[in-house]
Design a protein around this nucleic acid. Structure first.
Length: 505
RNA sequence: GCUCCGUUCGUCUAACGGUUAGGACUCAAGAUUUUCAUUCUUGCAAUAGGGGUUCGAUUCCCCUACGGAGUACCA
């Protein structure tokens, strides 16, 4: 909005590698991606690993793999760098060291030498004057602390050599900040409520706030699209841009994804309790060895998953719900993103998946089936597998189910419902069955149903009587597709063989 | 506590200040099917509460209630 029209749109996803990509992060990435692509821009991945203590091994790989599975392409990333690298913050230390000097020099930042204990004491001390909540370290309180604003130049020079220190952003009474959020609208913060946030930690690493602002500027990010949890800190970020004399990017703060029951942000616990995955792809925690399910492994189609996620907090204003990535890109806009959080609805995610499965070309499903088929045991000819796929497509919820849902047709029958068979069976059926098998042998598949109805009539049998028996003989169960579809899948030879194997009761 | 944000069917959501408040998921009933699934039809179900402004408020303003986020040398 404040940016020149000519500037190329660049958005980024900037996770910290503390675990796999969960659905909240995925949606943030998705929106940033959609926005960039909508405007023919670039989308890049930057890893924010400034807190080395929280790193979890393998996070980076799984984040990249998750994005890839979802079809979200990275124009620039650590392994595919553009001209703005490195794309991993821990490798950009010198850059931050250099940039912080500018702020120190122009007086926007200052050294603070307060020890952990002193900060703790400060908090305890100020609690009494603020309803049990400690006062912020800011222009109203910093004069009571040990920092380069309260010490002489000599003391400071000495302290820098001997004491651990942090560098804080200097915010003064006149630093009220206003900015426009693409989703929330006009925002305003009073300087008095802002703290002099730490920019550089005592270990020499930047904090999120500093690294983020520096990198977004250096990487020419035009639109910062991120979660609502950053809304309050944006005031600090704006002040940082000002301190540098840089033009801030456009900000857009996304609403949170809430737990399905009750209230609050969706957590791993909630998802597990409700029985749905929270991660895009499955993941094993390297320290606890705990394995978490993923949408990919569960049998979701990435297109369905993306479609569902996109609609959690955004819609295009029409009644269209089924939209592939390409359509989403065409229709996405930040001004139709909601302000309030959305409860996660797994039922609806399942529905999307089913819709996408229904629309899947038979060949795709066939591939999936063939990938998991036990070819040695399979009794179906490869030409007939396509019938199997067509028949079972509307009956599965997850793509992974295709190889197991009709196992009684693919392989020899393992479970025969003898109890029902015993109840329904009558030796009078034998002559009918004999004629029916002959019918199968001599009748084109398309005519079989009509012919069989006539046959049943001529034997003076009722559909409800004989059908369950045929089902049982063909598949071992009374449920499932029509017997004609089953016969088509099995092929005449298999079908006749099964019909002739009458269980002894 | 303080700061910021939010509130339409159970859920996701639509509605230039004027609609019988629309759609989707779920659920229920029905049609189709020998059964299951798909498909189709129908039904149930909402503007948090209270004040304004207005001829008229889901829509604008205020208050209350409720919910969320932030309030770290974590991101």
């Amino acid at each position: 909005m404040t940016l020149k029209e000519s500037q190329k749109v660049r958005t980024r996803f900037a996770p910290s590698p503390t675990g796999p990509l969960h659905i909240g992060g995925l949606r943030t990435a998705l929106y940033a991606y959609l926005y960039a692509k909508r405007h023919q821009g670039d989308f890049l991945l930057r890893i924010e690993d400034t807190d080395q203590n929280r790193l979890v091994e393998g996070s980076y790989e799984i984040i990249v793999e998750s994005l890839k599975w979802c079809g979200i392409n990275l124009d620039e990333s650590p392994e595919n760098p553009g001209k703005f690298g490195p794309y991993i913050q821990s490798q950009r230390k010198e850059i931050y060291q250099k940039e912080i000097q500018k702020l120190l020099e122009n007086g926007s930042a200052y050294y603070a030498f307060d020890s952990e204990e002193e900060i703790q004491a400060f908090r305890e001390r100020t609690k009494s004057e603020n309803n049990g909540f400690s006062l912020p370290y800011n222009f109203q309180t910093r004069n009571t602390m040990k920092n380069s604003l309260t010490m002489s130049d000599r003391e400071v020079a000495e302290a820098i050599k001997t004491l651990p220190y942090v560098i804080r952003l200097k915010i003064d009474a006149h630093n009220d900040v206003s900015f426009y959020d693409e989703i929330r609208g006009e925002m305003h913060f009073d300087a008095a409520q802002l703290d002099d946030r730490v920019l550089m930690k005592s270990d020499g690493m930047p904090t999120y706030h500093f690294a983020n602002v520096v990198d977004d500027h250096l990487m020419e990010i035009t639109h910062v699209i991120r979660g609502e949890e950053w809304l309050n800190s944006t005031a600090h970020h704006i002040l940082l841009y000002k301190a540098f004399g840089w033009e801030p990017p456009v900000f857009a703060h996304l609403p949170l994804i809430l737990k399905p029951e009750g209230q609050g942000k969706l957590s791993k616990r909630d998802a597990e309790a409700a029985g749905f995955p929270i991660y895009c792809v499955a993941w094993q925690n390297p320290s606890t060895l705990e394995i978490s399910d993923g949408y990919r492994e569960k049998g979701f189609l990435p297109e369905a998953f993306i479609n569902f996620m996109a609609l959690l907090g955004w819609n295009d204003g029409t009644e269209t719900e089924i939209m592939n990535l390409e359509t989403l890109i065409k229709r996405f806009s930040l001004d139709r993103v909601h302000k309030s959080g959305a409860k996660f609805n797994y039922e609806k995610a399942l529905w999307f998946n089913q819709q996408y499965i229904l629309n899947l070309p038979d060949e795709k499903l066939l591939e999936e089936l063939e990938g998991h088929l036990d070819k040695n045991r399979c009794i179906i000819t490869s030409e007939n597998l396509i019938h199997y796929v067509r028949t079972y497509k509307p009956r599965i919820q997850f793509i992974s189910e295709i190889s197991s849902i009709g196992d009684y047709l693919l392989y020899p029958i393992e479970k025969m419902d003898l109890e029902t068979f015993g109840k329904k069976w009558s030796p009078d059926f034998l002559s009918y069955i004999q004629e029916f098998t002959a019918l199968i042998q001599n009748t084109a598949f398309e005519l079989l149903e009509e012919a069989n109805k006539a046959l049943i009539n001529s034997h003076q049998l009722k559909m409800g009587q004989i059908m369950p028996i045929l089902r049982l003989l063909l598949s071992g169960t009374t449920q499932g597709p029509s017997i004609y579809e089953q016969i088509q899948i099995l092929g005449a030879k298999n079908a006749i063989q099964r019909l002739n194997e009458i269980p002894k009761i």
